[in-house]
Design a protein around this nucleic acid. Structure first.
Length: 270
DNA sequence: TTATAATGGTCAT
DNA sequence: TGACCCTTATAAT
């Protein structure tokens, strides 16, 4: 379930489990065999996330870079590792437990220059203390691209994915098709602050919950949502269902190859 | 048993 | 814009 909040949780969990100890590394699936050999026995020194990128630093100049892509998962558990099941690209082990990485779009060792290049092509991450929202605001303000597409562009903002994109636009009442440069400064400030708050919640809970107290299942007398992403949301994957605020049918379309969801009443065209 | 979809990104056209 | 990559869970057959 990889949007930025997931990766920040992973970074923290890796720091707790592997920080300061020599880790065992293997690639049961075999596709990262060389990298695992180089990692095996190194001591983990840093664990951080930038957007959806996980960066693990070791006591040499090689940084492990992991990107989960759309289906990647990383499972951490305490205790001795069981026999690997499925396609485990990388297994890390420590006295405290183990981590299994499956299906990542990137799992590679990077030198310092490559790490800098990676960071340089990412926009500010609302979950990072060093994020500069002005940088993102300037890019959005100059662009004719729709705000829906800009929010998915990791060079503009690093971390949000399709769920946060749809939900934050709904909560701000902004038409997804509005060109970036037509947003007011106030609208951008609201979007940024909401991303930061919602994603911080996501880091705490491990779920994406965006529904305000007034519209929760309990408040509305409706059954809780059952969806494999495991959270209560307004529009994401709710096409054809009534908007939780105004009962208009939630719409969906494909934009730049991704599903976009919105309520035409709550997010009117200007 | 096979098909499809999915919270992402890269590359080519 | 479309093809393709990675893996798994669920739906359809």
């Amino acid at each position: 379930m990889p949007e930025g909040h997931t990766v920040h949780r992973l970074a923290a969990a890796h720091g707790r489990m592997f920080g300061g100890v020599a880790v065992g590394a293997s690639s049961p699936q075999g596709r990262f065999a060389d990298g695992a050999r180089r990692l095996d026995g190194r001591v983990l020194t840093t664990a951080e996330a930038h957007g959806k990128h996980l960066l693990l630093g070791f006591d040499d100049d090689q940084m492990l870079h992991v990107h989960l892509g759309i289906y990647g998962t990383s499972t951490l558990a305490a205790g001795p590792p069981p026999a690997p099941t499925g396609a485990v690209r990388l297994r890390l082990t420590a006295p405290a437990g183990y981590a299994d990485l499956r299906g990542p779009s990137a799992c590679e060792l990077l030198g310092p220059g490559e790490v800098k290049a990676l960071r340089d092509r990412l926009g500010p991450d609302p979950l990072r203390a060093d994020a500069d929202p002005e940088l993102a605001r300037r890019r959005v303000g100059r662009s004719r691209t729709t705000i829906a597409a800009l929010l998915m562009d990791q060079a503009v903002v690093a971390g949000p994915g399709n769920i946060y994109r749809a939900e934050v636009l709904f909560r701000a009442g902004i038409d997804p098709m509005l060109p970036g440069r037509d947003l007011t400064d106030e609208q951008w400030a609201i979007l940024w602050a909401d991303l930061a708050a919602l994603m911080a919640d996501g880091v705490r809970t491990g779920r994406i919950d965006t529904v305000r107290p007034a519209h929760t299942p309990e408040a509305m007398g409706r059954p809780p949502r059952v969806d494999d992403h495991g959270g209560e949301v307004y529009v994401y994957r709710r096409a054809g269902l009534p908007c939780l605020v105004c009962a208009t049918e939630v719409r969906s379309t494909t934009l730049a190859g991704r599903n976009l969801f919105w309520c035409p009443t709550c997010q009117p065209t200007r």
